[in-house]
Design a protein around this nucleic acid. Sequence first.
DNA 1: AAGCCAATCCTTGTATACAGTGGAGTTCGA
DNA 2: TCGAACTCCACTGTATACAAGGATTGGCTT
Lengths: 219, 219
Amino acid sequence: MRASDRAYAALREDIIEWRLRPGTLLAEVEQSERLGVSRTPLREALGRLTSEGLTTAASGRGVVVTDISLEDIDELFELRETLEGRAAALAAERGDPRHFLQLHRELLAAPALLSGDDPARHGYYRLVERLDAAIDAAISNAYMAQAMGSLRVHLVRIRRLAADDTARLTAAASEHAVIAEAIAARNPRLAQAATTVHLHRSLSHVKATHTPHEKERHG
Amino acid sequence: MRASDRAYAALREDIIEWRLRPGTLLAEVEQSERLGVSRTPLREALGRLTSEGLTTAASGRGVVVTDISLEDIDELFELRETLEGRAAALAAERGDPRHFLQLHRELLAAPALLSGDDPARHGYYRLVERLDAAIDAAISNAYMAQAMGSLRVHLVRIRRLAADDTARLTAAASEHAVIAEAIAARNPRLAQAATTVHLHRSLSHVKATHTPHEKERHG
DNA sequence: AAGCCAATCCTTGTATACAGTGGAGTTCGA
DNA sequence: TCGAACTCCACTGTATACAAGGATTGGCTT
């Protein structure tokens, strides 16, 4: 694996996992020494992060980790509703019903994944990722897939802000199940509506859990 | 201006203007000599182009100019309809009607821009860009603006494929005028519908003019 | 004392040298 | 004659040295 890939992956995970908090200045020499690569591949990694929006170029000082506020979350979900709503509708038109029926069944059984001893909820999130991937594959539109992919980077970052308690994840699983069912039934309008409902409930949850911490300072 | 910016701008324009055709291999030394910069800034430029999708990394050989086929155009317009349709609706909800009324008036007068001696249609395209910018500003959503911006890069590239004759541009101007009027009237559904109509007619025109040349080879 | 200017330092931006890997071409064997 | 393997070359990937620019801090002036 290339050194620039390692630096990119390490920095990306540090930002997503909030080990590098918004506003943190990433100086080239500092980070290159920390990650054990030279400045050249590190610069490439920073360039990729900046193009994704995870970092912002600060003229003359370096790059800083991009801030993500409540306003950003509203904007992010507005775009998300636009893209994922349409994606669900297109998947309903084009997808293989059997595939989504299978995902529907697994999503109905998701509470079992949440009750077990899996604090990081890997099993659950993996199932949701499979639904996303199935929708991506069904619509077979590279441009749309790329647009949604660049969105998901920021969403994973937000996930860390929300207290994803078992109650919310159980509800989310059933919302996902409705989406999968609508796609399997080849009902585009229902699939889009179910996606809209799910996203609004997710957003409400994030804002409800995050607002109390709003006053804490960062930097 | 930085050398990497110059290299980026030069390569980007070469690709958009079809001076560098799809499939062309961009070797680092070759391009760095041609553009008069060293390999380091050139690599940064290539990285940016690749993240935008204008070039694709070919393992071990370098980067090649991304192909853009008729299928791509369908996919591109599918995403475009999703994003721009929603953007028009949001602009109708949030924009300043006076601003869009002004654009509406100018778009009605657009045929005058097309009849004059301006072979590159700069005046016309500038007016359309102002409408795009006004919609962007009205929705005030950085994520959505970025998504639409990355789309427009590819659209400019396609524009070169279509024979933008005066007849089509005159029709397009009147379609744009309808969109501006709907936004000014604060009618989101009409704005979205007008955008859908406009994009479908644009797509039909592109496909009608491009299909005859489909068989020509490139590389 | 406050504001402005200048100088210095730290930072990014660029060039180039070097290493490693992948590909293509050629040659040998079946 | 065709296929496969090996070798060589060219290209990318990385490191480092150097240059240039901006920001910050100190001193000077008002």
